[in-house]
Design a protein around this nucleic acid. Structure first.
Lengths: 236, 236
DNA sequence: CTCTGTGAAGTCATTCACAGCG
DNA sequence: CGCTGTGAATGACTTCACAGAG
């Protein structure tokens, strides 16, 4: 176990490995080698070993990794053994869709509050879980009361920096940003931006020049494009 | 103008530059140097010049770039001068939220169809634009009729690969995937995955070890974290 | 004299390849 | 003997630094 700096590329991949292990565990597979794992999910075996190597020695030489064991380790590494409580700023379409999204719960994330500045919306409750919409001004208070540790920005780009500043003032250190805006944050605060506009525009570039193949970032290429093995399943 | 391979990191940044130029144009600024652009938006001036350099010589030495001119060039490079027609597979919460999202239109994207396999939903129309929900089996037909060139996957991970195969069969070459699943695609098809689970889990990792600073991918660091210049705006 | 465009250098990430453990 | 863990090699991306255009 070293104390090197861990790249975000590595943490992203750990999340992917965890997902793969979940699939394997569900299939009843008890043990797997880095090679088998790599082949099955289009990854690189050396990279798996290297990524895991930053955190310890979880494998057994000559055998591979015990699925349940490795799963527990990665869960711990990613801090998913402790629950996270999520707030969403912006009760628009995206914000409410995210509030209702059930996919987070598997990873121990629960949406517990929504914030907005629209008097019309404040006080209402959203979705089956009846999540309350609070006045954005009460954020510091609600963050404390509800023990929120992750905040999602789902507001227009125009006000994103202001909202980010409020979130930082409320003491939040981890933020998932959906606003297509360049944001500045303190160094002790982590902002992860998901930019749908950029994603689409990048796809548009690909369409605009089908001849000159765009080089995909290697990680993604491996993860998502298996060389030619087109596995055309029947149309449903 | 060279004919090198363009990295996806570059195309992502072109999209960001375009956004910055839009802001500048709106502010009435006619001309800007790579340095000024970099400072204003937390970018690196050499990288801006290098990125642009792959496509031509758009600047004027001693002056910088003409905002309107560069904007037109990048728009053309990204293929945003031609409209794109988008289909969404999955009429769940995420799919419908995306169908209603107005942010795409600025970039010349229009959502024209939704697909689902739920008989309850097929035939209905969604949102102000009354976008029809089609049977996913009719995808090849609707793709042709509506000239769809970009498809969004907003279905559960379980069926994502199957849906991707159907999309590829329908002749689509550019796909934005929201399903948290490892997908395989033909090499002539571009799949861009937006993985909310991985994003959140990566944030969780950051929270789990605040001591050892995670090294952010440099591009993002520059874009989103301006060294210490905390600009604490008043709470609204 | 300023700022672009670009080789060269530097930094970081991935893949190779193999020593050595179980 | 198979597979991990890891230095060494390769490759990709970013930043530096400066020649030369305007």
């Amino acid at each position: 176990m070293k104390s090197e700096k861990i790249s975000e590329l590595t943490t992203n991949r750990l999340s992917v490995y965890l997902r793969c292990l979940n699939t394997l565990a569900a299939a009843g597979i008890k043990t797997i080698s880095s090679q088998a794992l790599a082949e099955q999910f289009n990854l690189n075996s050396a990279q798996i070993r290297k990524d895991l190597g930053y955190f310890g020695e979880f494998g057994v030489r000559g055998v591979g990794y015990y699925v349940a064991d490795l799963r527990a380790h990665i869960t711990k590494i990613l801090g998913l053994d402790k629950p996270h409580r999520v707030g969403i700023v912006g009760a628009g379409r995206l914000g409410t869709a995210l509030a209702n999204y059930r996919g987070f719960s598997k990873s121990n994330f629960t949406v517990v509050a929504i914030f907005d500045d629209d008097e019309e919306k404040i006080g209402r409750r959203i979705g089956e879980d009846e999540i309350a919409i609070h006045n954005v001004k009460r954020m510091p208070l609600v963050v404390k009361q509800q023990s929120i540790d992750v905040m999602v920005i789902a507001v227009p780009a125009r006000v994103a920096q202001k909202v980010l500043n409020q979130i930082m003032s409320a003491g939040i250190k981890a933020i998932l940003n959906f606003a297509p805006a360049p944001l500045s944050a303190r160094l002790d605060v982590k902002v992860k931006t998901v930019d749908l506009t950029t994603s689409l525009e990048s796809l548009s570039f690909f369409l605009a020049r089908p001849q000159s193949k765009v080089t995909t970032t290697r990680t993604h290429k491996q993860q998502f494009e298996k060389l030619d093995e087109i596995n055309e399943q029947e149309l449903k």
